[in-house]
Design a protein around this nucleic acid. Structure first.
Length: 513
RNA sequence: GGUCCAUUCGUCUAGGGGUUAGGACGCAUCCCUUUCACGGAUGAAACAGGGGUUCAAUUCCCCUAUGGACUACCA
């Protein structure tokens, strides 16, 4: 017997920027599909017309492409199960919904929003803790179960708005074997008669996802834990539709939680703690509201992937660094953890730093040439990359962490200056200033520069360490940074001289006062 | 409130009836060094609580506590 092909799907709704939790769900689906040589599909769940946001679909596409987790089948790539937008599959859901009504597994409901509200109020005052439209309360409502057949037909014929609701059995245990959590049992009395088809003719999520997963041959549903409570309803739908034998296996992923305290990670947390919770920056076209993105903050896709993979999953070995391909090889649903994972941006930064170091210098030279806001020669870029690559967390640190490579310092670390500046320093600098011009332009490199400085300090019997710190401030303005002699090499002979003169002028003036 | 899910260092987690409870991030100290990083070394740091079962429980069972998700004609 041939094993059926593994087919999984990521099914976001285009309501705005794709949340990072959704990205992780997509990643796990991708990893599982690739691991088993299966297919990863993307389906757009745009059944709520009110929440539809233009460009959101494109945002999803771009995010996944940036991360390299590209679906095999999707609205834009096509596939045998087209269309992959639920709004374009409206008739399909209607057909199944009506079929269920005909078979007595669902029914028409004509209740208005006000009537539903009144029902809930009534039940609450009667002391019902969980008011719902169910086997009991539906008897009091306006639906094809309570209304005379003629009236139902008349209402339908008159074009009166209606919904189709599932007829959940009164007393029954519904069980499902979740791949992450094991058996989950829910009593049918806890599930209400959920709307399957809305009065605008669109399906709700529950109907649409079951119908599509079946029609698209989905073998495993890997989704967030927020879907766990409604999973029994979906099991019921598979049964009512006669698809139980082909029902996919479920795996409900642990949630991504706020870094401090608890609760689902939200957009607010990103704003509060100063880190992105979305893959890409995004401005809502209607509200002009903007959110920041991992990509724009300077996170590398491989770092984000590695970080996200470990939020709720672990290979069981001590290896922490994984490329996408390695993750594919190592991934298994059994290793997914059950408890929610708090979002720790520090770990993401560590991964980023690691992957920056991993990339070869040529990559960063090219990056600098294209992105550095200051004018730059290739030879300078090469020196800068060699100097800073191992010290930075984000690519923009190349210039933000070391502005002195590009500009003469305006301000100096006065505190360090006050404690480290001595007459000896002043003397050394004055001598160095006269010695530097003796270095040929072609010989202007860290080694020779250091040599001249050493000559002076040795002659004067001064320890090099004594003067390095104040000289560093003279050349960079700050008290910390990479190898000073290399910095001097990068900024050039003229600029080095200029900076020495500047600090001498400044300190001399101070002495006079 | 009801239903469901969860609970090992601050965080992500490994482990699983008998372990010095392992790793990583972060933190601290030391080394390297012209400083700061990087790198290296070392260290502090955890089985939510209570009952069982058992010779033995962090591991299995129950309860409690805590946290979370869901509870729409949203997904």
């Amino acid at each position: 017997m041939n094993q059926p092909e593994i087919r999984v799907r990521f099914a976001p709704s285009p309501t705005g920027a794709l949340h990072i939790g959704g990205v992780r769900t997509a990643l796990y689906n991708y990893l599982f599909a690739k691991k088993h040589n299966g297919k990863f599909l993307l389906r757009i769940e745009d059944t709520d017309q009110n929440r539809y946001v233009d460009f959101a679909e494109n945002y999803i596409k771009e995010s996944l492409e940036w991360l390299g987790i590209v679906p095999d089948e999707s609205p834009w790539a096509g596939g045998l199960c087209s269309p992959y937008r639920q709004s374009e599959r409206k008739e399909i859901y209607q057909e199944y919904a009506h079929k269920m009504v005909a078979e007595g597994k669902a029914y028409y409901a004509f209740d208005t929003a006000e009537e539903l509200e009144a029902m809930r109020k009534r039940l609450e005052t009667e002391g019902v803790s969980n008011p719902q439209y169910n086997a009991l309360s539906r008897e009091q409502m306006k639906n094809s179960l309570t209304l005379p057949k003629e009236e139902v037909e008349a209402r339908l014929k008159a074009g009166e708005p209606y919904t189709i609701r599932i007829k959940v059995p009164r007393k029954e245990e519904i069980r499902l074997n979740d791949l992450v959590r094991g058996w989950v049992v829910v009593h049918s009395s806890q599930i209400d008669d959920k709307v399957l088809l809305k009065s605008d003719g669109m399906p709700t999520y529950h109907l649409a996802n079951v119908v599509d997963d079946y029609l698209m041959g989905i073998t495993h549903v890997i989704r967030g834990e927020e879907w766990l409570p409604s999973a029994p309803l979906h099991v019921l739908l598979y049964r009512f539709l006669g698809w139980e034998a082909k029902m996919p296996q479920f795996a409900h992923l642990p949630l991504l939680l706020k870094p401090d305290g608890n609760g689902k990670l939200s957009k607010r947390d990103g704003d509060m703690h100063g880190f992105p919770v979305f893959p890409l920056a995004w401005t809502n076209p209607e509200t002009q509201e903007t959110v920041r993105g991992f990509r724009e903050e300077g996170y590398l896709p491989e770092a984000l992937i590695n970080f996200l993979a470990f939020l709720g999953w672990n290979p069981g070995t001590e290896q922490e660094i994984f490329s996408l391909d390695e993750l594919v090889q190592a991934f298994s649903i059994e290793k997914i953890s059950k408890a929610g994972a708090k979002f720790d941006i520090k770990k993401a930064q560590w991964f980023n730093q690691y992957y920056i170091k991993q990339k070869d210098n040529a990559f960063w030279v090219n990056y600098l040439l294209q992105n550095c806001p200051y004018p730059l020669e290739k030879i300078q870029a090469e020196a800068i990359v060699a100097l800073l690559k191992d010290r930075i967390t984000f690519p923009k640190d190349f210039w933000e962490q070391a502005p002195y490579l590009f500009q003469t310092p305006e301000n100096y670390d006065e505190q360090t200056l006050a404690s480290k500046w001595t007459n000896e320093v002043s003397l050394v600098l004055k001598q160095w200033k006269t010695l530097i011009p003796t270095i040929d332009n072609k010989d202007w490199n860290a080694e020779n520069i250091k040599h001249t400085l050493q000559q002076i300090t040795e002659n004067q019997g001064i320890k090099l360490g004594k003067v390095m710190q104040p000289i560093r401030i003279a050349l960079t303005g700050v008290a910390q940074g990479a190898d000073l002699m290399l910095i001097a090499q990068i900024i050039g002979k003229d600029e080095t001289l200029k900076r020495i003169e500047k600090i001498l002028a400044k300190m001399l003036q101070k002495e006079k006062i």
